[in-house]
Design a protein around this nucleic acid. Structure first.
Lengths: 192, 192
DNA sequence: CGAGGCATGTAACGAGTTACATGATTGC
DNA sequence: GCAATCATGTAACTCGTTACATGCCTCG
């Protein structure tokens, strides 16, 4: 539902046509999500049949037709609902990096280190890019907030990778993911 | 593909049947992802028809049948491929919280503060829970790594929310999300 | 004149969710 | 005896992706 919140919110700030909306999300808000254009277009159609937005055709010269969308009253109400939920809810954050991390000891230490180093370099670069982007915005604007929030998380990641790099050198870790399986049924019966 | 990595990786550590796998993910690895059982079952079937795992039936007493899965050689190769990609790639992290953050000024300051406070309380609680979970694991084990990584991010979030709370009090922010729209086409023509 | 941007889609597909079905066993 | 747990699924659905289609405009 967060994509819906995004689209309704942007339309609340200003009426827009689909392509404009899509470009904005692709080019300026790509750090928030990566909603693709076809998904967006079909969502706009759904929002319209749900009565949350209205569509008006317009054409400038001989350029392609534009369908400009505006929020209806129902759309505004829906927006507020979604916003409230989004702000209250502590979104469960699922970091896909962690899944690889879980199997780190299935690889040679040297290999793992090489891969993680690659990731670290890429993250450092992203951080720099984002810092430049952040510099373009005034303090205490919404875009500033989200960029800063993002940056904080990326820096947390970088710090983490630095820490991990150091620890990997020293010891060979052993897996304990499955320990619970043994514990759980240890008293009742043997598993496998 | 990360779910596939997870399942293959767990099966590499130990042969398991579907329910066992599902329970492990639900109860011990819920901070990593929230793969549901039906999804898991259908994935296991797909992995089997792709020749990455094999299935063997077993029954203990009159309990329901179990289908125990093991990695094939192809499965192991696939696992290593996925693991390499996962470790190298700096996953783009899309924080859904940020979408709400973007529209913070569409709400009364007091309201926004109330909602964010609610989120903050929930996050603090999660941090405590996770600290307890972390205490159960030895240092330098894979589970320890992932839990610690997670904790780092949640603490980053908490710090961020504390910072934001302070800043919201002072000033009324104004939206600058759309500034780029005006800029981009300012020279060519008027938008809307 | 060709590449790339503007503007909107369709079609086929895949991954994931919820709700439901089944049937046995265990624990209170 | 009733609820929860064990164990495996099916069916219908939503969301999202990729690849493709169309056609006009602008810039070099």
């Amino acid at each position: 539902m967060d994509h819906e919140l995004l689209v309704l919110g942007l339309l609340k700030l200003r009426d827009m046509h689909g392509y404009q909306l899509g470009d904005l999300i692709d080019k300026r808000l790509n750090y928030l999500t990566d909603l693709k254009k076809p998904t967006l277009y079909s969502m706009l159609n759904r929002l319209q049949s749900d009565g949350l937005v209205t569509k008006t055709v317009s054409r400038e010269g001989h350029r392609p037709e534009r369908y400009t969308y505006s929020l209806t009253t129902a759309g505004e109400a829906r927006f507020v609902d979604l916003l409230r939920d989004n702000l209250k809810q502590p979104h469960m954050l699922h970091l896909n990096d962690d899944i690889g991390l879980l199997f780190l000891n299935e690889l040679e230490t040297a290999q793992a280190q090489e891969y993680l180093q690659e990731k670290l370099v890429a993250i450092r670069q992203r951080i720099t890019e984002m810092q430049h982007q952040l510099a373009l915005h005034e303090r205490d604007t919404p875009a500033y907030y989200t960029l800063r929030h993002h940056l904080i998380h990326m820096e947390a990641d970088r710090a983490w990778l630095d820490e991990l790099k150091g620890q990997l050198k020293h010891k060979r870790v052993q897996s304990d993911i499955l320990q619970c399986l043994d514990e759980t049924h240890a008293d009742s019966r043997q598993n496998e």
